[in-house]
């Protein structure tokens, strides 16, 4: 049972576990914050005196800035910890760091880590509400929420209407993508049909058992068969590891699985309002053609703006639940 106005879970570990009501509440709240972000004075006192710890164990300037701005616009104090794994090699473990930060009693903890499951480790030693800002290959819930927000906005729908009737195609390295995992949960929860496409070695085993998605290893079939696609979400290819592990070169990947001009033209031929999304940062010319990325169909910059409002909603609702002792489980 969801108490109206508050999430059913104490933390945002992922999209997994969220109810449709939770998702609607998060997106509705984010809409209110979009209004705040259009004001001249873009700040509200809701979290005045609360401490938000930003624990970024992986380089991610964009997500960290987005969360930091979100916290500041809610008048919270922020405590920023960044490391790129180097302090771990100096002997300090994740739990050591967590214990140090916990001593400052943060009300909210935002964590980004290159290891799947890191937020669960923190949950055991920290008392604040935890927001997962991306863990390994596992989940990146705020990215999925802002993707959903962008899709709703572009189709002029309210969060409660959901995304029924929409078809979204996610293309790339699904296996190593936390953005894909969160979207494969959230978009179907909101009623959208989701297709995923990528080279077979980038499609993890058991996809269909876990997610309500259609799976393709041929990107052209995914994009141009069945119902017309409303949005194409291109995932970033980790140039260093993934592309080479699967393909001989970046060009091979672009030809086989990238969103080239030709490929996108075929998508537009079936639906001239189709959108292009990308969680960024982009490899222009690899997974996405530069012209396609800059076309009016691209919502990539808009996604960045919506991100702050979504993260404000996450922080605000977690603080609300935390202050009222929302417990875990399906209570």
């Amino acid at each position: 049972m969801t108490t109206k106005g508050v999430l059913s879970l104490p933390h945002l570990m992922g999209i997994e576990g969220l109810t449709r009501d939770d998702a609607t509440l998060l997106l509705d709240t984010a809409r209110s914050f979009i209004e705040v972000n259009t004001r001249q004075l873009k700040k509200v006192p809701a979290l005045r005196g609360r401490l938000v710890a930003l624990m970024f164990f992986e380089n991610s300037t964009r997500t960290r800035l987005s969360f930091e701005l979100a916290a500041k616009r809610l008048s919270a104090d922020t405590l920023s910890f960044s490391s790129s794994g180097s302090s771990v090699s100096k002997g300090e473990t994740l739990l050591d760091t967590a214990a140090n930060i916990e001593a400052m009693k943060p009300d909210l903890v935002v964590v980004r880590h290159e290891a799947s499951g890191a937020p669960w480790m923190l949950e055991r030693v920290m008392s604040g509400a935890i927001a997962n800002a991306g863990d390994g290959n596992h989940e990146h819930p705020t990215q999925a929420l802002l993707d959903a927000m962008t899709l709703l906005h572009r189709s002029q729908r309210q969060p409660k209407d959901g995304l029924a009737g929409k078809t979204v195609c996610i293309v790339g390295d699904i296996s190593r993508s936390r953005v894909a995992r969160s979207n494969m949960l959230l978009l179907p929860l909101l009623g959208a049909k989701v297709r995923v496409a990528g080279p077979a070695t980038m499609l993890p085993a058991g996809l269909r058992d876990v997610y309500d998605v259609e799976v393709f290893d041929d990107v052209d079939e995914a994009l141009c068969s069945g119902a017309p696609v409303d949005a194409v979400m291109m995932l970033r290819i980790q140039k260093e590891r993934a592309a080479r592990a699967v393909m001989g070169s970046d060009d091979d990947y672009a030809v086989g699985y990238g969103l080239t001009k030709d490929r996108f033209a075929r998508v537009l031929a079936r639906n001239d309002a189709a959108l292009v999304m990308h969680p960024g940062p982009m490899n222009r010319g690899v997974e996405i053609d530069a012209e396609v990325a800059d076309s009016p169909h691209s919502v990539i910059l808009e996604q960045t703006e919506t991100g702050v409002a979504v993260r404000m909603a996450v922080l605000y609702l977690l603080a609300l639940g935390h202050s009222r002792g929302v417990e875990g489980g399906a209570a």
Binding site: G5, D28, S32, S323, R324
Partner: peptide
């Protein structure tokens, strides 16, 4: 707003 009591419902300005 964070001090308990009735659950605030954000409707937007």
């Amino acid at each position: 707003v964070l001090a308990g009591g009735a659950m605030p419902v954000l409707r937007g300005t």
